[in-house]
C-alpha cells in the first residue's frame, strides 16, 4: 500500500481537485483506492457527494473507540472509497498533541487498511502543524501543488527546508505547478525556468481551467464529465508521471 499526501501550507492551490482526480485515475487503473478527507472544510467529501460527518467526532478514532473502517464510505466510482471529513478535524492538532507519539499517529491509524487498499490519498488542510508532521511521517509521497508565483515558490522552499530540518525520511517530495495560466508572463517564466531547490519539480503542469472549477457543480471527478478536456489530459499526464504502480517507482 502506498500513501500519497497532497499538501501545501497555502490554501486554494488545487489540492482537493488533485486528490479527487488522481484518486479517480488510480481507481480506473484497477487499484483499490481510499481518499481521506483531512480538511475540515470537507471539499473532497463534497465532490463525492458524501456527507462530511464522522459520528462522535475524530476523537473516537484517535481514542480507539471505533475503527476507521466503520466510517469509510463507498463512492459512486468502482474501487474508490472515501473517509469523509468532519468539523471536529479542526481540533485534530490539539487531539494529536494530547496523544502519545503524535507524529506517528496517522501512520498507525492507517496501517490496518493495508489489506484493503493499494493506495491512500490524503487531502490535507492548509497549515503547518502537528497534523502535517503526522502526514509527513505516514506518507510515501508528498504531492505539492504550487502556483507558479514568487510567493508560492517561497512556500515550496519552506516545505523542502522543513523536511530537511526535521530529517523526515522515506518521503518523496513531488512538487508540480498547479493552476498555471500561461497567459500570465510570470507563470510562463517560472514554469520554463523553475528555481533549483534541490527537489525536482514534475514536468506535468495543471492549467487553470474552468472545467476544474466546474467540479463543484458536477460534484464528481473531471474525467467522468470532461474526459477530453485539456485539464483532464493534464491530470492524466501527472498521474502517469507519478507512475505509482511501476516497479521502478522510488516511493
Amino acid at each position: 500500500m502506498k500513501i500519497v499526501a497532497c499538501y501545501n501550507i497555502k490554501g486554494g492551490v488545487g489540492k482537493t481537485s488533485t486528490v479527487v482526480n488522481l484518486a479517480y485515475l488510480a481507481a480506473r487503473d484497477g487499484a483499490r483506492v481510499l481518499v481521506c478527507d483531512l480538511d475540515p472544510q470537507g471539499a473532497a467529501s463534497f465532490y463525492f457527494r458524501i456527507k462530511p460527518k464522522i459520528k462522535g467526532g475524530v476523537s473516537r478514532i484517535l481514542n480507539k473507540k471505533a475503527d476507521l473502517d466503520d466510517y469509510i464510505k463507498g463512492t459512486d466510482f468502482a474501487n474508490l472509497d472515501l473517509l469523509p471529513a468532519d468539523f471536529s478535524f479542526r481540533h485534530l492538532d490539539i487531539l494529536l498533541d494530547e496523544s502519545s507519539n503524535p507524529q506517528l499517529k496517522l501512520a498507525k491509524m492507517l496501517k490496518p487498511l493495508k489489506r484493503d487498499y493499494d493506495v491512500i490519498f490524503l487531502d490535507c488542510a492548509p497549515s503547518i502543524s502537528k497534523v502535517s508532521e503526522s502526514v509527513f511521517n505516514a506518507a510515501d509521497i508528498l504531492l505539492i501543488p504550487t502556483i507558479p508565483t514568487i510567493l508560492s515558490l517561497r512556500t515550496l522552499k519552506k516545505i523542502i527546508q522543513y523536511q530537511k530540518k526535521n530529517a523526515i525520511k522515506n518521503l518523496l517530495l513531488m512538487p508540480f505547478f498547479s493552476m498555471a495560466d500561461r497567459r500570465k508572463k510570470m507563470h510562463s517564466q517560472i514554469i520554463q525556468h523553475p528555481p533549483e531547490f534541490g527537489v525536482s519539480i514534475l514536468e506535468s503542469t495543471i492549467p487553470y481551467a474552468s472545467e476544474v472549477e466546474r467540479m463543484g457543480l458536477e460534484r464528481r471527478p473531471l474525467h467522468s464529465y470532461a474526459a477530453s478536456s485539456a485539464a483532464a489530459d493534464a491530470y492524466k499526464k501527472l498521474w502517469n508521471e507519478i507512475d505509482l504502480f511501476s516497479p521502478d517507482n522510488k516511493a
Binding site: 480506473r28 487503473d29 484497477g30 487499484a31 483499490r32 468502482a78 474501487n79 484493503d116
Partner: peptide, 10 residues
C-alpha cells in the same frame, strides 16, 4: 467466495 472486495476496470 466473495470474501474480498472486487476490482473493476473498463
Amino acid at each position: 467466495n466473495m470474501t474480498k472486495q472486487e476490482r473493476i476496470i473498463e
